[in-house]
C-alpha cells in the first residue's frame, strides 16, 4: 500500500464519521460509557488495593490483661505468644505507656479528660500488641491467645481484640467490585460493538454505489474494506480519548478534594496510573471499534 492510499483510507474513514453524524455520536458515546465505567472500576480497585495493603500492615492483635496480673505472668504470656509460629513480634505495653498512647490519640481534648488520673489511679490494664506475619492468620492467632487462659489457672487474659472483619470486608468489597465491574463492562462493550457495527453498516449502505463502481474498475477487496475498518478504529480511538480526558480531569479533582478535606485517604497519584489507564483504554476502545467494523464488513460488504 502506498502512502497516498493510506492517507486516502484514513481520510475516507474520518469523513464518514462526520457524514454519519448521530450514528457516530451514539457509537462513540457507547464506547465512552463502557470505557468510563471500566476506568472508574480500575481506579477504584487500584486505590482499594493500596488501602487494603495499608490497613493490612496496621492489623495488630491487642491483648489486654487482668488488672491484677503479675509481672511474671506477663513475661510468661509474652514468651508463649512469641513462640507461636505465626507471630512476628510481641510488644508489651505497661499501664503508663498505655495511658500515654491514649493521651496521644485523643489529642488536646484528651489532656483535659485524663487530667485526673495519676500513676496510682490509672484504670488501664497492662497490654501487649502482637504482630503477625500474615494478616490472614489474625483471627486464628487471636483465638489461640485467648485459649492460653484455659491452661492457666489464673486466667490472666482479659480481652483479645483485633480489627475484626475490616480486612476481610475490604478484601470482599474489592473483589465484588472487580467482578461486578467486569461483567458490567463486558456487557456494555458488546452493546458498543453492535452500535458500531450498525454505524458502519449505514456507511456501507450509503456507499453501495461507490463500492459498485470501485469493484467495476478493479479495486481489490482489501482496498474497499480499509476505510470501513479505519472508521471503526477511529470511533474506538475517539471514544477512548474522550473517556481518558473525563477520567483524568475527574480523578485530578478528586485528588485535590481529598488533599483538602480527607487527609486520611491517600489516593494514588495520577502519575502512577495514567500510562496503564491510557494503554488499556485505547487498546480496548480500538479493539471494540475494529470488532464492530469487522462484523459489519463481513455481513454487509460482499466483496
Amino acid at each position: 500500500m502506498t502512502i497516498n492510499t493510506v492517507t486516502r483510507h484514513i481520510r475516507e474513514g474520518g469523513k464518514s464519521i462526520f457524514r454519519n453524524g448521530w450514528m457516530s455520536i451514539a457509537s462513540i458515546s457507547s464506547i465512552v460509557i463502557s470505557l468510563f465505567i471500566l476506568g472508574v472500576f480500575i481506579l477504584l480497585s487500584f486505590n482499594l488495593n493500596t488501602l487494603t495493603k495499608q490497613i493490612d500492615s496496621q492489623v495488630q492483635i491487642r491483648v489486654f490483661l487482668q488488672l491484677n496480673t503479675t509481672k511474671e505472668q506477663m513475661e510468661l504470656l509474652q514468651t508463649d505468644i512469641g513462640n507461636m509460629a505465626e507471630v512476628s513480634k510481641v510488644t508489651p505495653i505497661s499501664k503508663a505507656e498505655g495511658m500515654k498512647l491514649l493521651q496521644q490519640s485523643l489529642g488536646e481534648d484528651g489532656k483535659e479528660l485524663l487530667k485526673g488520673y495519676t500513676e496510682k489511679t490509672n484504670p488501664l490494664p497492662d497490654s501487649m500488641t502482637v504482630d503477625v506475619y500474615n494478616p490472614d492468620t489474625v483471627p486464628m492467632v487471636a483465638k489461640k491467645i485467648q485459649a492460653l487462659n484455659d491452661t492457666n489457672s489464673e486466667k490472666p487474659i482479659w480481652q483479645v481484640k483485633y480489627g475484626k472483619g475490616t480486612v476481610e470486608k475490604l478484601f470482599k468489597i474489592t473483589e465484588a467490585i472487580r467482578n461486578g465491574g467486569l461483567i458490567l463492562v463486558a456487557g456494555l462493550a458488546v452493546t458498543a460493538m453492535f452500535l458500531i457495527a450498525n454505524t458502519i453498516k449505514v456507511t456501507i449502505m450509503a456507499r453501495q454505489r461507490e463500492i459498485g463502481i470501485m469493484k467495476l474498475v478493479g479495486a481489490t477487496n482489501s482496498f474497499i474494506r480499509w476505510p470501513f475498518f479505519i472508521e471503526g478504529m477511529l470511533i474506538g480511538l475517539l471514544g477512548s480519548v474522550i473517556t481518558l480526558g473525563i477520567l483524568f480531569v475527574g480523578y485530578h479533582q478528586l485528588i485535590l478534594v481529598s488533599q483538602n478535606g480527607m487527609q486520611f485517604i491517600q489516593l494514588i497519584p495520577l502519575q502512577e496510573l495514567w500510562l496503564l489507564l491510557t494503554g488499556l483504554l485505547v487498546v480496548l476502545g480500538v479493539l471494540i471499534g475494529v470488532w464492530g467494523s469487522t462484523l459489519s464488513i463481513r455481513k454487509f460488504l460482499k466483496v
Binding site: 502506498t2 492510499t5 463502481i213 467495476l216 474498475v217 478493479g218
Partner: peptide, 28 residues
C-alpha cells in the same frame, strides 16, 4: 464498463469521478 445510466458518483466533480478509477487501483 459503460452503462446506460452512467453510474457516476453524484457528490464528486467530473475530475474526481475520473480520478477515482485511478485512485482505486492505486495509481501514483
Amino acid at each position: 464498463v459503460i452503462f446506460q445510466d452512467f453510474r457516476l458518483l453524484p457528490k464528486m466533480t467530473v475530475y474526481e469521478n475520473v480520478a477515482f478509477a485511478m485512485e482505486v487501483i492505486e495509481a501514483p
